[in-house]
């Protein structure tokens, strides 16, 4: 396991360098849009088109990506793992990275695209984010305790963003 704090920016840069199609969701997505939330992992929904999976595998190789569990074994994600709709809970040299085939009610990369916006982090990095309203809807659909707990903060952030 990594013993330093996560560097989400480094992971995003590496994925962008490899021209990976992905959408940032979860806590990092919320924080980038102004929500005062903390998270220990970077959640992404990736395109499961074969060419994108090939590029993603190459990028993950440079990040020393492997499954967080079992701790005693170093298991690397494969093409079939990344092609599935499941959640790949990985550790990388820059911290935890969750690659999600689908989120909420089976929403995949393509079906989420219309609810995304592109955000320029700096001159060298643009990332695609799930919009805050869509993130709220999906957390409402999911309805897990962790998702419900964060909803008031997300809703109030959306309200504050909407104010002139």
């Amino acid at each position: 396991m990594a013993t330093s704090s996560p560097d989400f920016l480094a992971i995003l840069r590496r994925l962008a360098e490899h021209k990976i199609d992905f959408i940032v969701v979860g806590g990092v997505c919320a924080a980038l849009q102004g929500a005062p939330v903390a998270t220990f992992d970077l959640d992404l929904v990736h395109s499961r088109k074969p060419a994108n999976i090939d590029r993603l595998l190459a990028a993950l190789e440079t990040l020393d990506a492997h499954y967080r569990e079992p701790v005693a074994r170093w298991i690397k994600p494969t093409k079939s793992h990344l092609a599935s709709s499941g959640h790949q809970l990985l550790m990388t040299s820059f911290g935890p990275l969750d690659l999600l085939g689908t989120i909420g009610a089976a929403r995949d990369y393509e079906s989420l695209l219309s609810d995304t916006t592109e955000m320029e982090i700096d001159r060298a990095l643009k990332v695609r984010l799930l919009g805050l309203a869509a993130l709220i809807r999906i957390k409402e659909e999911t309805g897990g305790e962790k998702d419900v707990a964060i909803l008031p903060t997300l809703r109030r952030t959306l309200e504050e963003k909407s104010k002139p």
């Binding site: 806590g27 924080a31 980038l32 982090i121």
Partner: peptide, 22 residues
């Protein structure tokens, strides 16, 4: 806290998040 976060650039928001986790 929300208003403070919204006053920051996206890069600064990410840096705040990473500093918080650290």
């Amino acid at each position: 806290l929300i208003r403070w976060m919204l006053s920051l650039t996206p890069l600064e928001r990410l840096e705040v998040l990473q500093a918080t986790i650290r």
